[in-house]
């Protein structure tokens, strides 16, 4: 079995201009690997929303994608404020986004619910004042990438 492929992206806090680059980049990479378009789309949505959360809420951070022949794991790590109530945060429409972020068209409270819907595994580890780690996995459909 070949070594997994690691991809890493740095995400800068409050940078609304370049926000979305990591998810675009990941999307191109997954396409070149020949993954099914449904997987590519789900990974793009997860990465995009997670990236936005790093920009808006997490004070910036890192996205780490790890691909092997069966699945892709997408993690985001930040040292931001943490999430006091995870259940609430994952609820549709819940948001603490600032007015500024909302003016920029972000913060509809659909990010985490969308991430959850598109992931086969979904975990949040968070500590208030310390930061948040989000871990998601998409399992490839059978027969993916077999000649």
């Amino acid at each position: 079995m070949p070594e997994p492929l690691d991809l890493e992206y740095d995400v800068v806090a409050d940078d609304y201009q370049t926000a979305g680059e990591a998810s675009n980049n990941l999307k191109e990479t997954l396409k070149m690997l020949g993954l099914p378009s449904s997987v590519v789309r789900r990974a793009a949505i997860i990465t995009y929303e997670a990236e936005m959360n790093l920009v808006i809420h997490g004070g910036g951070g890192r996205i780490i994608a790890n691909i092997d022949e069966e699945k892709i794991e997408i993690k985001t790590i930040d040292r931001g404020p943490g999430i006091p109530d995870i259940v609430l945060a994952v609820r549709e429409g819940y948001t603490t986004a600032s007015d500024h972020a909302r003016e920029m068209g972000f913060g509809a409270g659909m990010g985490l619910p969308n991430i959850k819907r598109n992931a086969d595994e979904f975990e949040i580890e968070t500590e208030v004042g310390k930061g948040t780690t989000l871990r998601t996995v998409i399992v490839f459909p059978q027969d993916t990438g077999k000649e």
Binding site: P2, L5, M32, L33, G34, E69, K146, E147
Partner: peptide, 11 residues
């Protein structure tokens, strides 16, 4: 076209 039709090879 992907880099290879085999995922391991493409990686």
């Amino acid at each position: 076209l992907p880099l290879s039709s085999d995922l391991g090879e493409a990686m």
